[in-house]
């Protein structure tokens, strides 16, 4: 009786440890780590911004090359972005594994600082339409931008105003785009130095041409 009891206990504990182990079977996250021959530039990218600004869309484009239509909100825990080599005009860079974090206020407060410290390139994306018409959105976004600048330690931060299509509908032109950029810079200027907010782009993330321009910034 005793050997049988011991056997069951031993088997049970073996099974227990096997199943508790992270990455077991179909629950796991297996990250492919393909080694490449020639050394290429490595970037750990952070895409930050308020909820529903286009962070997931941009990540998906950079890693998969496709524009997502109506992605679901990112879960609280963040979603893993696997290491990926991306190419443009015969140039290659390695995007190191990072996280797509949700834009909710509490997750920003919880995870953002760590992500900024780990990253060496930051896209800060916000809805430029709401930024101009919704005062609360504008204030909270400015507070968020300030948070990024206070923690970024002179890393490159590019501000991206998304949803620009909502500003102009069909009558989008170079001039109106420039005007809106100036308008946004003017809203930001009282609180931020011009040097910090110099790199700002207004884009329509559903346009493959415009989103690919953002991708090319990684190669500069």
């Amino acid at each position: 009786m005793l050997p049988l009891l011991l056997t069951v206990l031993l088997a049970g504990s073996t099974g227990f440890f096997l199943l508790k182990k992270e990455g077991f079977g179909f629950w796991g996250n297996e990250e492919s780590k393909k080694s490449e021959g020639s050394p290429i530039k490595e970037i750990r990218l952070a895409i930050l911004g308020p909820s529903s600004s286009g962070k997931t869309t941009l990540f998906h484009y950079l890693t998969e090359g496709k524009i997502l239509k109506n992605p679901d909100p990112t879960s609280l825990t963040g979603e893993k972005i696997k290491e990926k080599i991306i190419e443009q005009d015969n140039k290659r860079i390695k995007l190191l594994s990072t996280e797509d974090i949700p834009g909710s206020e509490s997750s920003i407060m919880a995870y953002c600082e760590n992500l900024i410290i780990k990253s060496d390139f930051i896209f800060f994306i916000f809805n430029c339409y709401l930024f101009q018409i919704d005062e609360k959105y504008c204030l909270t976004t400015k507070a968020f931008i300030d948070f990024v600048f206070r923690h970024n330690n002179n890393k490159r931060v590019i501000l991206i105003g998304s949803h620009v299509d909502k500003l102009h509908n069909q009558q989008d032109s170079e001039n109106s785009r420039r005007k809106d950029t100036e308008n946004i810079i003017n809203i930001l200027l009282p609180e931020f130095e011009i040097d910090k907010i110099r790199e700002i782009e207004l884009v329509n993330l559903t346009s493959s041409k415009e989103i690919s321009n953002l991708k090319s910034m990684l190669f500069k």
Binding site: E22, N29, F59, H60, S75, L76, T77, G78, E79, K80, I81, K82, E99, D100, S106, S107, M109, A110, Y111, N114
Partner: peptide, 18 residues
Amino acid sequence: IVSGRKLLRGKYDFTISK
């Protein structure tokens, strides 16, 4: 509470694969 996720970070990966 949301930051509580950080406590186990490094030891366990809490992120979900996209």
